[in-house]
Design a binder for these strands. Sequence first.
RNA 1: GCGCCCUUAGCUCAGCCGGAUAGAGCAACGGCCUUCUAAGCCGUAGGUCGAAGGUUCGAAUCCUUCAGGGUGCGCCA
Length: 582
Amino acid sequence: MKVQLQQLLEQTVASLKQQGIIPADAQPRVQVDRTKDKSHGDLATNLAMMLSKAAGKNPRELAQLIIDNLPESSLVTKVDIAGPGFINFFLNPLWLVEQVEAALIDPRLGIEPIADPQTIVVDYSSPNLAKEMHVGHLRSSIIGDAVTRTLEFQGHKLVRQNHVGDWGTQFGMLLAYMEELQAKGQEINSNLSNLEVFYRAAKQRFDESEAFATRARNLVVELQSGDEHCNQLWREFNEVSLSHCQETYDRLGVSLTRADVRGESAYNDDLNQVVADLDQAGLLKEDQGAKCVFLDEFKNKDGDPLPVIIQKKDGGFLYATTDLAAMRYRQRELNADRVLYFVDARQGLHFQQVFTVARNAGFVKPATSLEHMPFGTVMGEDGKPFKTRSGTVAKLADLLTEAQNRAYDLVKSKNPDMAEQDLRNIADVVGIASVKYADLSKNRTSDYMFSFDQMLSFEGNTAPYLLYAYTRVASVFEKAEVNASELTGSVLLEHEKELDLASKLVQFNEVITSVARLGYPHLLCNYLYELAGLFSSFYEACPILKAETEAQKQSRLKLAWLTARTLKQGLSLLGINTLERM
RNA sequence: GCGCCCUUAGCUCAGCCGGAUAGAGCAACGGCCUUCUAAGCCGUAGGUCGAAGGUUCGAAUCCUUCAGGGUGCGCCA
């Protein structure tokens, strides 16, 4: 509804320009805000105050002219001038009814597919295969996934890229340890079942034995030079580690698959070409034996231009090189219009640098948008980066199990007589949803405090609150013994709570647009929480099955139904499943 | 030293391309289950928006300075 009003005001501005009331070169950003106070109507604009100076009129006088020139529309019933020159708009309930009815009969809830779809490459999750996924991977995986799903729903073409860390020096250590186990006749697969343990054991051998360490370093060289034995071990290791990741994705409801994996190693063959291209472009300089690109935009400690090291003096490559190769690939092969990186905020400088290099080298077209979507660190309750009591980083799988167990206890206490299987299913969904929602509902860019108790409190602004609202609708329909498709009559917005609910329902598309543009899933969380809240109030204040008239009952069932579908769709964009019962 | 980010209620967080009395949740206190699931609803209380200047009709929001915290800055990723 904001958008519609904005369009009306744009027309008004054009008309006022024609009449010479405001200068033709004025380019006001037409801003429409939702009001906080009902006495100010539903929507307001400050347009008159913005333009008053340019028009040489006092704001209230100009406001009147704006109102006089506003095109006819069924959107609003009343327009007022208030305070210093605000224009307040009162929404026409009949217009709301139309919107609600239209959304009800549309599988996409009234949200049109986007007119100009883009190819959007999303780089997210990207764990290091040397270790098991831990809490640190949670944010990238689920925030990236939520934004990906939202963009996909809008109608864009999404290419997921799981840029896993499957290359680098630490693999020498791991391969050496695999060799050692093999020599002892041990089953490697079972040893790899717990990657954390495996990694620590390999590290220990590396630290305690010089011979082992030497072997590890040699294996890195052999691996990079394409030695078949080495590559065999390496593939075996990655296979196991990737299947661990996939288990976690499936459990978490992250939409990544094996087909989306394109790890660092996939760019090995491109690295020399990247160096050659940079050299060709005249960007490369040798410094202290390393090949670097110096960027005047960035300074180091001494105020000198900051280098991006492309190739080490020993000939090895660094992650900047791989990232550049990936950008080149994403432009040339994937034809990206937009590339999003859901990566820790601490890598901000790195991305600023490689984005700049990639542009200077022509790896990406000027029109292609490269966007680092940073997120903050997950902190423990002591305010330091999250660790377990033993000081190690918490395994993601253990975290999820803990969440599901806590949810199970709660579900059981609420439903003592429920069948075990059902309890388990509900608890699993609630547990996962809680963990995801706790993260998604916070502003991506800030660090946040990880707390089991808050994440799994199941009260207030949490996933269970939203799921609960959804099950209430499901329950009503079960009791009513009607199908949504059988509902008759038109929506009636008589009660204040009905109006509020309808008004919120109609705002769904605005939120999706914002999430898609900015990559902030918490905006959708906020919206869904407000929607569920308004529904809960409506549910208390407006009896559905015991409504006063049949027409009222039908209307309320429709409102409830659209609420449920909006919640389900919204949660689905967040990668969260709903339940019919809990 | 330089860059980026942060500082809002006791706690955890929204709000930040300026807008009308600063919002939630938790915790606290008081109501509401013979009526559609109380994982809920209704209400009370709680804030010099880190500090000081500035721009503006109007600043939590923009600019400057300062304080405190975080994070990053050449051969790890």
